[in-house]
């Protein structure tokens, strides 16, 4: 059974078409990333998958059921963008309600609520009311609620936006840890983060699905992304081109170069590069096998 299937999916708000004929099939497994500029339709796609809104045309199915179907209750969870908890109750009370709605007994729901709160390091704030939380803490609580009862699909809409680096890292580790049981679909603008985390990247632009990139495609081995600390760009470009088996070298950003080669031998290009650096006393910062996600999507 497919995890998610969208056929000819469109959504219009008045005259504005937010999503245009999206066809999509996703299978369970490594986290899936959804990227795209502001207003590309990411949140609309998430809302359709969660059943918050209904499509103008086309079909969506999750685990073989339509969004909102009783069979999906408790199996699909989400971190909705900008949704906040009821300010009248403390966090624990609300998470316990969510747990009991998912079928836990009161007692089980309480321990489950405390479990997910400790996953995001907030067990100590369980008795606080939502209004007394900072933006980042509220976001972590919202992530915690999406993990109640270990659902099969978790949709995270910009999970690390607004989090401090330490907590963002913690959330990434959490997603990685849990992704053996749960398939995460993550929308984010942080490409570095998605690159580390996801197996597949979907690129949405102007409401259309324009690209689907797999992180471990075989082409990766033909590329090296080189970041230098300080060097003479011209000299480097010429120096690398003179090495064996180099097809091309391109300057991407400040001190970042993309090298394409056709060497079959492992580490041949790398060692040639190190020799070149030593000869010229150049300091390198990083050598990445393959291309960055940014380069894959925007070149």
């Amino acid at each position: 059974m497919r995890l998610i299937e969208c056929k000819d999916l469109s959504k219009s708000y008045g005259s504005k078409q937010a999503l245009k004929q999206v066809d999509l099939t996703l299978d369970a497994g490594a986290p899936i990333a959804l990227v795209g500029p502001n207003g590309a339709g990411k949140t609309t796609l998430f809302s359709l998958l969660c059943g918050y809104i209904t499509p103008t045309t086309g079909e969506v199915s999750l685990l073989g059921h339509k969004p909102g179907d009783a069979a999906l209750l408790g199996r699909v969870a989400s971190l909705p963008q900008d949704a906040t908890l009821d300010p009248n109750f403390d966090i624990l009370t609300q998470l316990i309600l969510f747990g009991t709605l998912q079928g836990f007994s009161k007692k089980e729901a309480k321990s489950e609520a405390l479990r997910v709160l400790s996953l995001v390091d907030l067990a100590g704030s369980a008795s606080q009311k939502p209004k007394s939380l900072s933006h980042g803490m509220a976001k972590r609580v919202a992530i915690a609620q999406s993990l109640i009862g270990s659902p099969e699909i978790v949709l995270l809409d910009e999970p690390t936006a607004g989090l401090d680096p330490a907590n963002a890292k913690k959330i990434r580790e959490l997603v990685r840890e849990l992704s053996s049981k749960t398939t995460f679909i993550i929308s984010s603008h942080n490409l570095d983060e998605l690159e580390k985390l996801c197996g597949q990247v979907l690129y949405l632009e102007l409401g259309q699905l324009t690209q689907s990139v797999s992180m471990d495609d075989s082409q990766q081995s033909q590329y090296l992304t080189l970041t230098m600390q300080q060097c003479d760009s011209e000299k480097l470009l010429n120096g690398v081109m003179e090495l064996a088996d180099i097809s091309s070298i391109e300057k991407k950003q400040h001190n970042e170069f993309l090298i394409k080669h056709n060497s079959e031998e492992d580490y041949a290009i790398e060692s040639a590069l190190f020799t070149l650096f030593k000869q010229n006393s150049w300091q390198y910062k990083a050598i990445l096998k393959g291309r960055t996600l940014e380069d894959k999507l925007f070149s």
Binding site: C50, G51, Y52, G68, A70, L72, L73, G74, V76, A77, S78, P80, D82, A83, T84, L85, D86, P87, Q94, F98, L101, Q102, Q145
Partner: peptide, 17 residues
Amino acid sequence: SDKARGTFRFLTLRASR
């Protein structure tokens, strides 16, 4: 107010509308 705050979105994935 639940609808305006988005609190509803936490509920609909757990209980039918």
